Amino acid sequence: MKKILVIQQKMIGDVLVSTILCETLCKAYPDAQVDYLIYENTYQVFAENKKNYNVIFFKNEYRNSKLSLIKFALTLKNENYDVIIDAYSKLESWVIVGLSNAKTKISFRKNISNFLYTHLIDRHQIPTTNLGLVIEHRLKLLDPLHINKDLYVTNAQIFVTEAENLNAQKLLQANGVNLDKPIVMLNILGSSASKTYPFKNMAKIIDKVAQNNVQILLNYIPNQQKQATEIYNLCTQATQQKIYFNVLGNNLRGLLALINQCGAVIGNDGGTMNMAKALNKPTFIIFSPWIEKKAWNTYEDGMKHVSVHLNDFKPNLFKNKNLKSLKKENNLLYNQFEPAFFNDLLTHFININLVNEQ
């Protein structure tokens, strides 16, 4: 086997997860050329990783112009890939796969695009390990290649440079953060309103964390300052004194370096949590009612990685409801998800990962 293409256009969490495919393929076929096709804006999350594979950018112009997409797909056709693994399987990748002359084309089974592929993978619904369905499904894409499972890479990783760590430490010290005391980051806002724990409840979570001897960073981007301030104002004055509100990474690499200084990350599900795990940081995740926890609760062990979902505590609220109805009722359901439901779990997590580490 000489050339392999892995396609994973999507957001940071997905791109990070699918790096395990590239890493595994490089181990299994050390003499092969492995190329990884991703959206350009997601690259920085693993830009400093030592990679034995190449990265190809799917540019915005390919998304905005069908002609540009076809021209790009034809350039990939000329690469004469032996294998294409399409972990994305949407229109953009269908064009690439359809025009390719690769002998082996692997993706997940979908009614619309099945004819494009030589091997179709069914997604199972019950996890068989604590890797989470999103990782188990990715690894199943390797089944047609019959790779020795001892070679499988199951943990995505992010590397932060020494210079980036030093810059983060200088930023923290300049804002009065003591590097010798535990620092915890609260991921207070999700990627959308539907993935964001209600503000009043998030404030209670921050208050709970602040009862310990910790220093608190809030993760938000500048255009979310209004929402972040609203959550901050809902916290007690004692909690506010432990929050370093203006300490932010000025870009994605800066955020990664700040996470790397933290003892744990707590809060909403999203890319930040996937990055924290790839940096080997403990995580406590609150999932939105319409998100399927079993897909993204990767590496859950009840100690270093813990997650909670309303369905864990009120399963009757989810009986006979499909994704469409859950999305419609999301706000109503989320407001019923009281912090008191998982207070003991959060206390246990804090005691293990923050208090006992002091």
Rank of each mutant, 00 (worst) to 15 (best):
Q227V: 05
Y232M: 01
K77Q: 03
N54A: 07
T347Q: 14
I350D: 09
I96G: 00
L37S: 11
N330G: 09
L142I: 10
K66R: 14
L354K: 10
N260D: 07
L171P: 13
Y334G: 03
V177F: 11
I20H: 02
F46T: 03
G98N: 00
V134M: 14
G132A: 02
N60A: 11
N268A: 05
N54D: 11
K50D: 13
L258Q: 03
L252D: 03
D150T: 14
L25M: 01
N52E: 14
H137Q: 05
L139F: 11
E292M: 11
E162P: 14
V55D: 13
K66D: 00
D35T: 00
D31W: 09
I291A: 15
A228K: 00
T347S: 15
K314Y: 01
R253H: 10
C22P: 06
A210C: 12
K103C: 05
L76H: 03
K195W: 15
F287I: 07
A238K: 15
K50N: 14
D312E: 07
L131D: 01
N155G: 07
L189K: 08
N101H: 01
Q240K: 14
E92R: 15
I205K: 03
K90Q: 11
I135N: 13
N320F: 14
Q9N: 11
E92I: 04
W296N: 03
E300M: 00
L279H: 05
L172Y: 12
L317K: 09
L74N: 08
N251W: 02
L67G: 06
G263S: 10
K242P: 03
F46R: 10
I188K: 09
K277M: 15
F318I: 11
N250F: 05
Y244P: 06
N280A: 15
Y244L: 10
I350W: 09
D312L: 12
V45P: 11
K77G: 08
N246H: 10
G263L: 08
V6T: 06
D122V: 07
N250I: 11
E357W: 04
T298G: 00
M202D: 05
A28C: 10
T118S: 14
T272H: 10
F284L: 12
N260M: 02
A278I: 02
K294C: 05
K277E: 13
N148A: 15
S325A: 07
Y36P: 08
N331Y: 07
Y62S: 08
Q169S: 11
N60Y: 13
N60T: 15
L25R: 04
A295V: 14
T347N: 15
T24M: 08
I84D: 07
V265W: 12
I147M: 06
I243V: 11
Q358W: 08
A168G: 05
S192P: 12
I135R: 12
S100E: 00
Q173P: 15
L354F: 11
L116T: 00
F58K: 04
K294E: 08
N311L: 14
A276N: 03
E300G: 04
N130R: 00
T129M: 06
G271Q: 09
Y117H: 04
Y244Q: 02
P198L: 01
V15G: 01
N60F: 08
E338R: 13
G190S: 09
K59V: 02
I350Q: 10
L234T: 03
V95M: 12
L189P: 13
N297I: 06
L252K: 10
I135S: 01
L186K: 03
G132I: 10
Q358C: 12
F245W: 05
I85W: 12
N78G: 02
K181R: 06
L333F: 09
R253Y: 02
S325N: 11
V308T: 05
